[in-house]
């Protein structure tokens, strides 16, 4: 935790933005997308960015799963509606493989980025999502930001996260201990994370939120990513709690 205080937007001077294009090392990318035109479009957009390197593509879930046997990549772009299954299965499989899980950021690509699909993807382990008709500049920027540890968020998702991890979460999570591997993460939202989600749900951009909270854009992005991780833990403890309640798991 960064231990930020809400001193108001004016007290902290805006942090100058680093130029990602020049400073960042090469980012390896793997795309799983069954529609050729989108695949082509993505490839073309990526080719315009020297630091983004498309290392693999797959058009089916089976191909995608097969590629997991190889070396992990930095960013996976995955469509949820694959011809032989859901992209969610690929995301879940990655969550089971420590090598991939620890080094690969997963970004879901979708036409509309509607709440139901995005929430499911985040709960499965994705940390970002892209609308397919994003402009090339936004497309490239979002991949870079994701790789740098920041996640995008839409107002509807922010609102949903607040509802899921907000007020009710503390009492719900006390009895069920978090899984050991993420025990260090409190499942409740930190106040600063709650602030970010609050602003995001009301339409403020990251830059505006950063300014309002007196932190950097990057910090805001990392808060969002942390709240995604908390959602994943929350879903797991919720599932565990439900299972215990129904007698499927013994203490």
């Amino acid at each position: 935790m960064t231990g930020l205080r809400d001193d108001g937007p004016k007290t902290t001077p805006p942090t100058p933005r680093t130029d990602d294009t020049r400073a960042a090392p090469t980012i390896s990318i793997f795309i799983v997308e069954d529609k050729a035109e989108f695949l082509d479009e993505f490839s073309r957009m990526l080719s315009s960015a020297p630091d983004l390197h498309l290392v693999a593509t797959a058009t089916t879930l089976a191909e995608g799963l097969a590629r997991l046997e190889g070396a992990p990549v930095d960013v996976l772009l995955v469509d949820l509606g694959l011809p032989d299954g859901s992209g969610l299965d690929l995301i879940r499989e990655i969550a089971r493989r420590p090598a991939w899980r620890d080094s690969c950021e997963i970004m879901v690509v979708s036409v509309f980025a509607d709440e139901a699909h995005v929430m499911a993807a985040i709960e499965a382990g994705a940390s970002g999502y892209l609308v397919k008709d994003s402009s090339p500049a936004s497309f490239i920027q979002q991949i870079r930001e994701l790789h740098a540890g920041g996640s995008p968020i839409s107002p509807v998702i922010a609102r949903k996260l607040l509802a899921r991890l907000g007020a009710a979460s503390s009492s719900e999570n006390t009895p069920a201990a978090p899984s050991p591997e993420r025990a260090s993460l409190a499942v409740e939202l930190a106040e600063s994370e709650r602030m970010v989600l609050h602003y995001a749900s009301r339409g403020y951009t990251y830059d505006e939120v950063a300014k309002l909270m007196g932190v950097t854009r990057h910090t805001v992005l990392s808060y969002v990513k942390r709240s995604y991780l908390k959602l994943q833990v929350h879903s797991k403890t919720e599932a565990l709690y439900e299972a215990r309640r129904m007698g499927l798991v013994r203490d």
Partner: peptide, 12 residues
């Protein structure tokens, strides 16, 4: 599902 929240609607 924005729950009668016009701020989120405008935000979207």
């Amino acid at each position: 599902p924005i729950g009668e929240d016009i701020a989120t609607l405008l935000a979207s």
